[in-house]
């Protein structure tokens, strides 16, 4: 209200939004705009998967807290299958220091980057970040390694995770990121190291510099990214002009009208035949 500037707080999702389209990013994070838009190509299907994914994370967190949520997992066949795969994984054991649903923030320049870790496991001097994934498709490991989540999470842990390590900073080489796909019971492991760590820092600073210069114009590669992998929520806002209804006519096409045309619009009244004497 008074023009105060506050540090921008970004997560991996925000950074992905930036990569996808600068205007999408602005509408989501800089000047949040309520603009109703379809949620994916099949809204109800994506709604169900999102809901189940959230439930799985809750169950896993409860397990980490020492509870037994197996009876809760039985409420849905997908949930049950996923939870069993989780329990069978090498990352379900709770021996040793395990942090679940941990939120960490780190500063880079004027920006604060935030990560919500599904699980951080300490094994000796090694730290394993585990992220549970419920997607049906297994991604290409090389593509995944360049995803903002795979870059940002180990970076944040190395930057500010000393609280988990007795006050001693965690070396990038001691961190690995595991994406565990519960649909398939498979994992993708990405090792962090100093070179990668500095690369992430440079990338974040580059993004920051770009944001400072940005006019937040649509950068969705000529509209291609507006629809894939799922339609952008702001599609109808950005493409209002394209969506202009064809049947609207230009002013030249408006027919000439006379007084009778206006009279035709008036409601029909019944008048008494008798003249009114004044």
């Amino acid at each position: 209200m008074t023009g105060e500037s506050h540090a921008l707080v970004l997560s991996a999702t925000g950074l992905r939004a930036w990569d996808r389209c600068e205007r999408l990013f602005a509408f989501t994070y800089i000047h949040p705009m309520p603009w109703p838009g379809p949620q994916g190509t099949d809204p109800q299907l994506s709604e169900r998967r999102t809901s189940l994914g959230t439930q799985l994370h809750h169950l896993i967190h409860q397990h980490a807290l020492g509870l037994d949520p197996r009876s809760l997992a039985r409420t849905d066949p997908d949930l049950r299958r996923w939870f069993e795969r989780y329990r069978a994984s090498a990352y379900a054991a709770l021996d040793g220091p395990v942090h679940s649903e941990l939120h960490l923030s780190a500063s880079v320049g004027d920006m604060v980057v935030r990560a919500t870790f599904d699980r951080v496991i300490q094994r000796g001097s090694e730290f394993v970040i585990v992220d549970w994934k419920t997607s049906e498709r297994l991604p290409d490991a090389r593509v995944l390694a360049d995803d903002w989540q795979a870059l940002l999470y180990p970076f944040v842990l190395a930057e500010v995770g000393s609280a988990l390590n007795g006050g001693v900073a965690i070396a990038p080489e001691a961190i690995k990121m595991v994406f565990y796909y519960v649909e398939h019971g498979q994992e993708v492991v990405i090792q962090h190291d100093s070179e990668r760590h500095e690369g992430v820092r440079s990338n974040l600073l580059r993004v920051m510099a770009s944001m400072a210069r940005s006019g937040y114009e649509p950068t969705g590669k000529q509209g291609q990214r507006c629809l894939k992998p799922a339609p952008c929520r702001f599609y109808s806002l950005c493409h209002l002009a394209d969506m202009r209804i064809e049947e609207q006519v230009a002013d030249d096409d408006v027919p000439e009208v006379g007084p009778d045309d206006y009279l035709a619009l008036l409601p029909e009244y019944e008048f008494d035949d008798e003249p009114v004497s004044l």
Partner: peptide, 26 residues
Amino acid sequence: EQAFAQVYAPRCLLGLAPDGVKGEAG
């Protein structure tokens, strides 16, 4: 949602392109 995106927005909000989002209200 569809009524808004397919009918209301193109008919009633046409010409209401967003501001330079870096501007005032954004």
